[in-house]
Write a protein that binds this DNA or RNA. Structure first.
Lengths: 235, 235
DNA sequence: CAGTATCCGATGCGATACTG
DNA sequence: CAGTATCGCATCGGATACTG
């Protein structure tokens, strides 16, 4: 931040100076995805410390990238993108498209923790495509080495806005069992592979409710960048 | 570089991981502008140390962003962008446009050294718009505090590909005298102001050959981003 | 829930000097 | 011209612990 400016007369460089501090763009993406609360952003980013997130949010506010709205009555704070940072969408889209086409899937999908993937997946479930009753889906990650929490439960209550995500057994009957790995599941979400292909490759097993299993392609939405032409697939 | 990855399943984040190390994007811009040689890039960036430039070039080569071509016979090395980094142009254009519209001119134009501006200006002279004889133009920067070298000479020889730039008196007769300041000149180059406006504001004085003075708007090209609609002007 | 307050450590970066 | 080789420092960022 106080890092010495480039000192170039070049708009791209000025943009870089604003956007380069670590997590800045990721925070904007998180807000873009709908998070507004401190701890939602934090979970969405997975690995950021609350200290740094707090600092960064204030810097971004000072730079006019975000707006901080404190609701004293309700006792909480919401963060929103400003006009200024919303106007970054074309640039961010262009970066995403570039990454989809020019970064190999194995690299682009590696290194993500199961918890981070699941927290993102939670937002990608289309409740309208699920039965109008409670549904419990258990994900089991068979990575090597195994993640800290290898099991996750997605609990969908009828009428809820978002599913619930648990990393400890909520003690409900399970409708659908999903066996997968971080890379395979990430590849599906990012459009680098598909449910069908991962089943074939052995990266995805479904068991339990056959209806839920069959409709997975509908109730699990893929990323908005999944359809970019020229996306490099998982080999 | 070995900085810990974000660990997010998000193409934008992967793009960031590749592009965030300091000077990476600036190097790409330099190559885009036509530089191919180590010392040209270095001068274009103004403030980078040769040690860091060398390191960064090798990392970028390893990432597939640039190609290093060694001409043993001629005894020199050229750097070129690869297909991969050329495909970043849409993203870079989007960033430039955003910066033009959302970063105030005073901030966007501040802090550049006269030497860096002049080295860029050197590439923005349209030789076809200059008389077919030798022309010498002297720039004088009246900044406060004054730059290390307050005077620059642009020497255009007929038939040359690029003008020469000197910071020490080449001892030629001078055809045109330009008195200006770093911010004013930068504003003209970046399309945040114009020659006419800077003359009015007192940011630019011309004296000497009236023909050269009058045609300055033609022989001095502005940046490709100068015409972005909504560019924030210098106040 | 939404942060602060510290503290420490890695390393990225810059400056300088030197080479084939 | 096109780099290496060092070196030291600043600062950025992560971890941990604590608060209204």
């Amino acid at each position: 931040m106080t890092r010495r400016p480039y000192g170039l007369i070049c708009p791209i460089s000025r943009a870089c100076e604003i956007l380069q501090p670590r997590w800045t763009i990721q925070i904007l993406t998180e807000l873009w995805n709908g998070s507004t609360r401190f701890n939602d952003i934090r979970r969405g980013l997975g690995n950021i410390s609350s200290a740094l997130l707090s600092r960064r949010l204030r810097q971004m506010e000072a730079l006019g990238l975000i707006e901080r709205i404190e609701d004293k009555a309700a006792g909480h704070v919401d963060y929103y993108r400003t006009e200024k940072s919303i106007k970054l969408e074309p640039a961010m889209n262009a970066l995403a498209e570039w990454a989809q086409c020019h970064i190999e899937a194995e690299i682009a999908l590696g290194g993500a923790e199961a918890s981070t993937i699941m927290w993102g997946l939670r937002r990608m479930i289309d409740l309208a495509e699920l039965p109008r009753r409670r549904a419990v889906i258990r994900f089991h990650f068979r990575d090597d080495p195994p993640p800290k929490y290898p099991h996750y439960w997605i609990v969908v209550e009828p009428g809820a806005v978002l599913p619930e995500l648990c990393s400890l057994d909520p003690g409900r009957d399970i409708d659908l069992y999903v066996e997968t790995g971080t890379v395979s599941l990430a590849a599906i979400l990012e459009g680098r592979s598909s449910i069908a292909r991962e089943k074939e490759r052995g990266g995805l097993f479904l068991s339990g409710d056959p209806g839920l299993a069959r409709s997975m392609g509908r109730w699990l939405r893929t990323s908005v960048w999944a359809t970019v032409a020229g996306t490099l697939p998982l080999s």
